[in-house]
């Protein structure tokens, strides 16, 4: 389908929804599927964050002060939000490397595409490791647990570990898939038409873009979690 001949603007919108075969003209099945999945996932994270707001509003004891809980001591000086700033920076940067990987994917530049995928995975892994460090610090040194903490309402720990854990799981899954993708690109699966081990289907460099959608989403969600937990 030649997309340049399609009507533009609102006419285009009406045309596409009234057309046969495809609503999203020129969009592959996999990409459309990822978008819809992310929509559903957005609802999951929204439910989590709205629950956080509700829970926070109805605690019996006051909510802990984020800058106290998340402070980090560097050379004897306590710097609030230091670790989390680094984590956020790393994750946001990984969105950049991901975007570059997608670009090289489209150029079929296998080498650079692999490198940037691996870089992205590395950032993701670094993020998860820092999160693990933060969790350990909170649990072991500061006595924050899902069922109680010395700073205030016990729901703080419950929501914190649940939501960051849920997000961390997303990042971890993303890292695993980034590594799989990197291997596929490196081996040249998308050029040779090598079939997937499970699905027995061929794939192409579009898979990198779809992977990118997921990764950017996970980063975007982090921004909200960051704002809800650490800045407020």
């Amino acid at each position: 389908m030649n997309r340049s001949t399609l009507p533009k603007g609102w006419d285009g919108f009406a045309h596409d929804w009234a057309a046969d075969q495809k609503v999203f003209k020129g969009m592959s099945w996999g990409k459309a599927m990822m978008w819809i999945f992310l929509l559903s996932d957005t609802f999951i994270f929204s439910c989590l964050l709205i629950s956080l707001l509700t829970g926070r509003a109805s605690t019996a004891v006051s909510w802990p002060d984020a800058s106290v809980v998340f402070g980090l001591e560097v050379f004897g000086v306590s710097v609030p939000l230091l670790l989390i700033a680094i984590m956020t920076f790393v994750l946001i940067s990984s969105s950049g490397t991901m975007a570059i990987a997608v670009k090289y994917g489209y150029e079929k530049n296998r080498k650079l595409c692999t490198i940037f995928l691996l870089l992205t995975a590395l950032c993701g892994a670094a993020f998860v490791s820092m999160q693990a460090f933060e969790w350990t610090k909170l649990i072991v040194h500061e006595g924050v647990s899902p069922w109680g903490n010395p700073f205030g309402a016990e729901q703080f720990g419950a929501f914190f570990f649940m939501i960051t854990g849920f997000h961390g799981t997303h990042v971890t899954i993303g890292v695993i898939f980034l590594l799989i993708m990197a291997r596929k690109v490196w081996r040249g699966d998308f050029d040779s038409g090598r079939r997937g081990y499970f699905t027995t289907m061929k794939s192409d460099y579009l898979a990198i873009e779809i992977m990118g959608l997921y990764w950017h989403f996970v980063d975007l969600v982090w921004v909200f979690i960051f704002a809800f937990f650490y800045l407020w």
């Binding site: 929509l39 559903s40 996932d41 609802f43 999951i44 929204s46 439910c47 989590l48 629950s51 829970g55 899902p146 069922w147 016990e154 729901q155 720990g157 419950a158 929501f159 649940m162 849920f166």
Partner: peptide, 23 residues
């Protein structure tokens, strides 16, 4: 769009049961 709410509700209930949180 609706199952996410059940999923989240159920997850929190699971934590309340297993971990003793009090969502």
């Amino acid at each position: 769009l609706a199952f996410p709410a059940l999923l989240v509700g159920g997850l929190m209930l699971l934590l309340d049961t297993v971990l003793g949180t009090s969502f």
